[in-house]
Design a protein around this nucleic acid. Sequence first.
DNA 1: GCTTGGCGTCACAATAATGTTACAGCATGC
DNA 2: GCATGCTGTAACATTATTGTGACGCCAAGC
Lengths: 236, 236
Amino acid sequence: MDPHVLLVDDEPGIIKGLSHSLQREGYIVSSAGDGVEGLRMAREISPDLILLDLMLPGLDGLSICRKLRESEKTDSIPIIMLTAKGDDVDKIVGLEMGADDYIAKPFNTRELLARMKAVLRRTGEHRPDEDRPIRYGEFRIDPDSRTVTISGQPTQELSAKEFDLLHLMARHPGRVFEREQLLDSVWGMEHYDTRTVDVCVGRVRKKIERDPTNPRYLVTRWGVGYSFVAERKDAP
Amino acid sequence: MDPHVLLVDDEPGIIKGLSHSLQREGYIVSSAGDGVEGLRMAREISPDLILLDLMLPGLDGLSICRKLRESEKTDSIPIIMLTAKGDDVDKIVGLEMGADDYIAKPFNTRELLARMKAVLRRTGEHRPDEDRPIRYGEFRIDPDSRTVTISGQPTQELSAKEFDLLHLMARHPGRVFEREQLLDSVWGMEHYDTRTVDVCVGRVRKKIERDPTNPRYLVTRWGVGYSFVAERKDAP
DNA sequence: GCTTGGCGTCACAATAATGTTACAGCATGC
DNA sequence: GCATGCTGTAACATTATTGTGACGCCAAGC
């Protein structure tokens, strides 16, 4: 569940409306307003799917597509191109460039959702099962009992929100979650203007981290958000 | 939870589509493409339910059904027959052979799901442990007499619903049951908008817990539901 | 180093979830 | 029919959780 989608478009209206719709459907959405930013984010967050506008300031969609296909890390991320009213040339070129599908603006949200679903299914896998136990090294999450154990030792019990937050993030180790995404996914809230996430993260840390001041699992990505790291970075 | 379903059908299209649908609904699906393979798998994995096509290469559905009923191990696994367009003869024979239900192709997935649910509920989700006594430390449940004893002392008699609730939860110690799940499994209701579960839990506690205010067995998972704990957490 | 904005943390109020009790409707057995 | 016990609902009491704002510290950029 919870596929991560990167939306790259320069129209704020599209970004806003689509983000909302996609989030409501269970997607985690990140967005970028221009090509350069889009490319950077695609590399940084490794989304499960990219919605890419063709016409972009800075770096156009086709170039981004090509660059993404060049790198092994982003090589297999499915891309759906958003083209301005159906000009066939671009469609064909886009598909040749490695896009998985295209859809012409103005598009129906339903149709887009259907295509996204199709693409995600086709490329498969990118769907860490919601109910499967998670394990990285000594770290374990059991969704059945909603408990977390480290080295076999159960941590202090997590509250509902705390567990949901940790579970969501642990399902995507290494991925950076912006506060707004977490707020939307875990709280179902729309706009971010509170410190809610920070406080919840703090509470989780206090319960699962050996040293909550120097988190090993739930780390801060300064200026961006938080992420769950599965691998140990350095020797203690 | 997560009932294991064995799907035996020779049409790849059916297998593929149905597997997907069933998995989405939370079932664990195994599949076999012919009768021999189906019979072998049924014996090997002891599924909670078998969806069995009537017309099969190798070994037809009725023969499989009969063979499964002959062995004690597979004797009580519920079977739903998938018959080609409703020919009554087969239906009758199928039911006589020991199938629990039948459904005619082409069938509506919704309807199939409903029947599966009904059969699973009727057979009590047919886990082998269903009728076996449960024991954790001094805690004991005897499904035959529907009684509970703690340290050899019989608790106050539980009513039907109370016992079912406790029994279900005790069969999966540690697992968190949401109210809606309990309401569905024990009461057979669909939508949750009552406090029925809470009250029933309270009643069970009053009968089995030494201190109903601080339950040792039937504990609350705040914001989620309830769970039965088998191990003692701390020394009193 | 200094400034600036982001972040960690705390205590407490607000909220939502749960515990509890009483009661009326039903089914059941006599 | 009548009595009895089981059940679901509603209302009220009780908590655990959770959001907020304030305050102080820390990272990044200059």
